[in-house]
């Protein structure tokens, strides 16, 4: 592999990992609300969460651009907050990947939370644990395998994200050109099949590796041996 190709793989991993770190807290909160909450508009929330899965990715990418471009309100707010723009940067790529992977992340976490007996949380509360301690010591450990499954699926989805990314942050080599974008670009150029093939092979290795790692981890988790 060439240094460029290694750079592309490394950027892709960085973007996908950042996307997961960014998406996990809201995904957890959303999954918990969908699993345990009883409130009006739960169906609406479910629909909004599923939206990136059913919308054409280009539309999602354009929506992100409309909100976070350097001249838009969201973009200016982020720039004021962090001192750097998000559109057309690797952080933007991570944001696009996070949004696209969100439904894939939420679903298994929600299912895992639903599978945890709410009665165990009640038992923890009567033993003196407040809501948050019950969540941290009972619910989350028991839901950990589902959490991990969500993260692996989400990571894979983020790794392969294409449409929203190219629309939102374009395909800038060294900044936003992740695996999928690079493969697409190479396939457009004469003689690009060789390097594209290597990148494709590597993306397969990455995906399979993530799944194997998650399964090995799941067996060591507290709730995994049930």
């Amino acid at each position: 592999m060439t240094a460029d190709e290694i750079g592309i793989v490394w950027l892709s991993i960085k973007v996908a990992a950042a996307a997961m770190a960014f998406a996990l807290p809201p995904a957890l909160a959303t999954a918990w609300m969908l699993a345990r909450g009883t409130f009006r508009g739960k169906g609406l929330l479910q629909a909004v969460v599923t939206l990136p899965l059913v919308l054409p990715p280009v539309v999602t990418g354009y929506a992100l651009l409309a909100v976070f471009s350097p001249n838009a309100t969201g973009g200016r707010f982020v720039e004021w907050l962090t001192g750097a723009p998000v559109a057309f940067t690797w952080k933007g790529a991570a944001l696009a990947a996070a949004v696209m992977a969100f439904p894939v992340l939420v679903r298994p976490i929600r299912q895992a939370l639903e599978a945890v007996d709410a009665g165990l949380e009640e038992a923890a509360r009567t033993l003196g644990a407040n809501r948050w301690r019950a969540l941290a010591t009972i619910t989350l450990p028991l839901a950990a395998p589902g959490l991990l499954a969500g993260l692996v699926l989400g990571f894979a989805k983020a790794l392969g994200e294409f449409g929203a990314t190219i629309t939102f942050v374009s395909s800038i080599p060294g900044e936003t050109q992740t695996l999928s974008l690079a493969i697409y670009g190479l396939l457009q150029s004469v003689g690009g099949e060789g390097p594209a093939g290597r990148l494709m092979a590597f993306s397969v290795v990455l995906a399979v590796g993530a799944i194997l790692a998650s399964e090995a981890l799941a067996r060591r988790l507290p709730g995994g041996g049930r």
Partner: peptide
């Protein structure tokens, strides 16, 4: 519940499986 000082023995025990 955590501030009531009421210990609860449930019908189905509800031990923490992990």
């Amino acid at each position: 519940p955590e501030r009531r000082g009421v210990g609860f023995v449930f019908q189905d025990a509800r031990l923490f499986p992990h």
